[in-house]
Structure formats: C-alpha cells, structure tokens
Amino acid sequence: MNWPRMLDALSRIPHDLSIHILMVVIALAISIAISIPVGVLLTRPRYKKWGIVVMNILNVCQSFPGMAIIALAMPILGLGLKPAITALIIQALLPIARNTIAGLNGVDPGIKEAAKGMGMTPKRVLTEVEVPLAMPVILAGIRTSAVLVVSMGTLAAYIGGGGLGDLIIAGLNMLWVEFLLVGAGFGALLAIAFDRGLRYVEDRLTPPGFSSI
C-alpha cells in the first residue's frame, strides 16, 4: 500500500464524487420526469394499446450493455458530461416506467370503481387514489434505477464525463490499487447511500394504514 498515492486518490474524491452525484441526480430526475408520465399514460384506457410497443422499446434500451450505450453516445453527442447523462437516462427509464405501470395496474379495481362511482373525476381518481396507492411500487422502481445509474456512472469517464470513473480508469491504466480501491469503494458507498435514502423516502411516502411492499 502506497500511502501518498492513497492520500492523492482521497484528495480527488470531493471533486469526483460531487460530479458523480450531480450526474446521477440529473439523470435520475430527468428519467423520473419522463417515465412516470409515460407509465401513467400507458395505463389510461386510451393509450393502453401502445403499452406493449413502448415497453418493448424500453426493454431493448435496457438490454444494451451500459458500456455500449456510453460508446454509442460519443459519436452522436460528443464528449463530456452531457452525453454521459443522456446514456444514463436511457438506462434508467425502464425500471421506473415498468414499476409505474405495475403499480397503477395493481391498485384494487374495487377501490377505483368506488372512487369513480362517488363522482370523482378521472383526474382526481388518478391523483388522489391511484398514484398514492401505487407510490411504494413506483419508488421501488426509482430505487432500482438509482443503483443502476450510480454503477453505470463510473463508465462515463470513458467519454470524458468525469466522476468516480476517473479514479478507476486511472487506477486500471497505472495499476494503482489505491485509486481502484478509493474509486470503486466510494462508488459502492454511494449506491448504498442512494438505496438507503430512497428507502427512507419510500417509508415516509407509503400511505399509513397500508402495508409496504
């Protein structure tokens, strides 16, 4: 173990970690903003028939290896943070959309029927009944995506996106174990932190008197 090198690696952490977090948060926020409305639309009667098409497209996106998406993003979008975030978004869409659809479809039809039968407009049924009841499942999807994006974010360094990947690539190229340990270690810690944090949000948002999943 080379202590000066270890300290060097650690001194890069504040910068690399904050870029990594920024990347993850932006990618996650955008994919939530896309996936949840798509999931909601695909469970409305009018658009239900498009469900299979859209889910298949998202499935294909998901099945690309992360490395391939990063590599594909470069010739189209160039180098830097922006193409890296775009690649992350593509990967994060599916789990959230899938869980949104599953969550909304899983709401007891008797409850929806009663809500509609009392005179709630379809919009009210969605916002006051369906979304709150589907929330635990939707949040579980966001959690899956978050962990996925944190780990895939380390690949962003290959196209100049920065983040913890910088440490890992440097470590691999130079065979510096310390850089590898610090980069991968903080990546793992970050994934755990996101998972825990979102689980806490999930607990807080789970409707009371309602068993969590």
Binding site: D108, G110, E113, A114, G117, M118, F210
Partner: peptide, 16 residues
C-alpha cells in the same frame, strides 16, 4: 354520480 349513493360489495374504502 356525486348525487347518487353507491355501495359495492368490495366496499372500496380508500386504504390510505
């Protein structure tokens, strides 16, 4: 529907 009482077998109370 707001002006018609409606009761169904599943009851359909909002659990949250």
């Amino acid at each position: 529907r707001m002006n018609i009482g409606y009761v169904i077998q599943q009851i359909g109370l909002l659990p949250h």
